[in-house]
Amino acid sequence: MSAGSVYDQLQRENKRASRFLLIGSVLIAAVMVWVVAGAMGVPVLDPVIGVSVTAVGTAVGLLFVLAAARSGPSIALRAAKAREVPREEAPELHNLFDEVCVAAGIMGTKPKLYVVDDPAPNAFATGRSLEDSHVVVTTGLIERLPRYELRAVLAHEVAHILNDDIRTVTLAVATAGLVALLADVMVRFMILGGGRRGGRSSGGGGGGGAQALFLLLGVFAMILAPLAAQVIRFAVSRQREYLADATAADLLRDPQSMVNALRRIDSDHTNLREFEVATAHLWFEEPNDTDPGHGRAAKMARRFATHPSIRERVERLATLNAGTVRTDAPLPPPPPPESRGYQ
């Protein structure tokens, strides 16, 4: 199989994963709506009422959450303390970014370029569409990576935009938010409604039994649903990292620089000074180092990791570009401290 068809295959898988992610999280949200409605005493076991209440409830909830998610990118930028960087301030960075954009054919709709003051080498992309997209790099990345490796990381971020990951992830986060919200509603309902319900159920008949059952279901859902939503979200975001690496290497026809950049960043253990768990999945590398051990805690941490291990990413890239990439060669020296004219 040629590199091109492997790449097409990956892209198809990415699209399928996007659908799976969206359908899966909407289903979880729908089940939550159903359970919450049931616990509140709505006769959801009746097929007509059950289906219509669940459908309408989920649709309204999603609409609200999506409306809120429209401001997601600007919140992410603010949380990371990113500021837009003009060309005069970092001419080389802009040159490299132009090289990536021209190869991607998006010179007409170039994403905005931002910098975060942070010594940890990292980067992320966010936005609602190609026309409204943002690429963020840390000053640590600019200072530590040689020219072509820095370009490879920029290409990885642009790849997230090209592959429509930024929108999918925003939607996924929004749906996970809805599930969390519903779980919260459930908790409040149980605490506040508990006393009142006691009085009412003495007068009620069989409805009380069903409601009790739903309350029990609600307890389970409350615990499990947010967890399930997170697991889906993380599994799918890991898959995206592989594809973005591959897309970036393919765009620039320079897989070696991508591999080198990954290896260099792997050997660097500076953690980001400021990051929110909510935006962890956005970054190029997991913002805080996870324990690479074999203990139960380490395994659990990896299950909830937003990114695959860098070693795994390097291996996949090397397989995809078999014969043209070296993963054991010594890395080229980092740039001299003052060379970027930027601190």
Binding site: D98, E99, V100, V102, A103, A104, G105, L251, L252, R253
Partner: peptide
């Protein structure tokens, strides 16, 4: 930089 831009534009 220009050579890279040419190469990128050509690839696209």
């Amino acid at each position: 930089h220009t050579e890279n831009m040419v190469a990128g534009a050509r690839g696209h």
